[in-house]
Design a protein around this nucleic acid. Structure first.
Length: 338
DNA sequence: ATCGTAACGGTTGAT
DNA sequence: GTATCAACCGTTACG
């Protein structure tokens, strides 16, 4: 059970344990970093732990993506469509073939290797569920498998996958196709859950307004951005409901190397401009757009005026940065090119 | 003071 | 429908 309002970290920022920071915050982190602001200052300004800032920036530098990795799920399925197709073929050629024989043939024919070879029980399940209602064959297989031995457990070595239907790449979560796009805040999948702080808090995003008000050319991106952040006023019964169609929940395309590729991405320059923070809750304002993420007392640089942690615009970020570092001129970056 | 990272407790989703 | 598992998350603390 998640806390209804998240938790507050040592910096006064709000987070939901186990859940990623909102994309807007992640983008802000990268933006500020690209403005030359030091990670420690970003951490204080956005009230995100420096470990998190470090992690996000490291990931961004490595992959070009600001997005969190794919949370949850199991190991990639070994029963890929190709494997199923071959199993079907084997079964059609020899209706009496046993599951363990199919398994051997998959290996012998090079359809699978030892790392992604389905277990006998998996093949039996495929024969039973996918190949057709060959009940007599299933029955026969069952008896034959019993003679051959107990069904094998899950593959012992299936941690290595070289086929395309794996779930989103784990250690390298971002699609290689967009990994090195400079200045892109690559978005490679839809925000995965309704359990974001935003959803929990039910704070309306300005993005929704932007969809209605913005120019049509940005509609699709904004719509995607809206779906990514999926802001809506949740009721308690609404919190756990997926807000997007399950079929469209993940827009990524699996790549042959097991990594995911997105069908689209969001440039920071396509996002709405930053607004002044909109305090949507007496407890905190937490909008997954670029607008507001305010909790607790506003942090101030040691020798400066007050800055809003998430609501500052680029100029204030720059002023902040200029206070923090004197070497900014070498990193002149504008928001439009981020 | 800053940064990288392991440990931790948590969530998620496929099986 | 539930349990398991392994991925991820951000925070915290330590060096």
């Amino acid at each position: 059970m998640e806390p209804a309002f998240g938790e507050v970290n040592q910096l006064g920022g709000v987070f939901v344990n186990g859940r990623p920071l909102p994309n807007a915050i992640r983008i802000r982190i990268v933006e500020l970093a690209q403005l030359g602001i030091r990670p420690c200052d970003i951490s204080r300004q956005l009230r995100v732990s420096h470990g998190c800032v470090s992690k996000i920036l490291a990931r961004y530098n490595e992959t070009g993506s600001i997005l969190p990795g794919a949370i949850g799920g199991s190991k990639p399925r070994v029963t890929t469509p190709t494997v199923v197709r071959h199993i079907r073929t084997y079964k059609q050629r020899d209706p009496g073939i046993f599951a363990w024989e199919i398994r051997d043939k998959l290996l012998a024919d090079g359809v699978c290797d030892k790392f992604n070879l389905p277990s006998v029980s998996s093949i039996s399940r495929i024969l039973r569920n996918k190949i057709g209602t060959l009940s007599h064959l299933s029955h026969r297989e069952g008896s034959k498998e019993a003679a051959h031995g107990t069904p094998q457990p899950a593959l012992p070595c299936n941690h290595i996958y070289s086929y395309p239907t794996s779930i989103a790449g784990r250690k390298v979560p971002s699609p290689p196709g967009m990994a090195t796009l400079p200045g892109h805040m690559a978005v490679h999948r839809i925000w995965p859950s309704s359990h974001s702080v935003t959803d929990i808090l039910g704070i309306r995003s300005i993005t929704e307004q932007a969809i209605g008000e913005g120019p049509p050319v940005h509609g699709s991106r904004l719509e995607e951005w809206s779906s990514i952040n999926r802001i809506h006023f949740s009721t308690s019964s609404d919190v756990d409901k997926p807000h997007v169609d399950p079929e469209t929940k993940y827009t990524q395309v699996q790549m042959p190397n097991g990594l995911s590729r997105v069908s689209s991405c969001v440039r920071v320059s396509s996002l709405p401009p930053y607004h002044t923070p909109t305090q949507a809750s007496p407890y905190m304002g937490y909008s997954t757009t670029s607008t507001g993420y305010v909790a607790g007392p506003i942090w101030q640089p040691p020798n400066s005026s007050t800055l809003s942690p998430h609501g500052c615009d680029i100029s204030s970020a720059l002023s902040f940065k200029s206070m923090s570092s004197a070497s900014e001129n070498s990193h002149r970056v504008t928001a439009s090119v981020l």
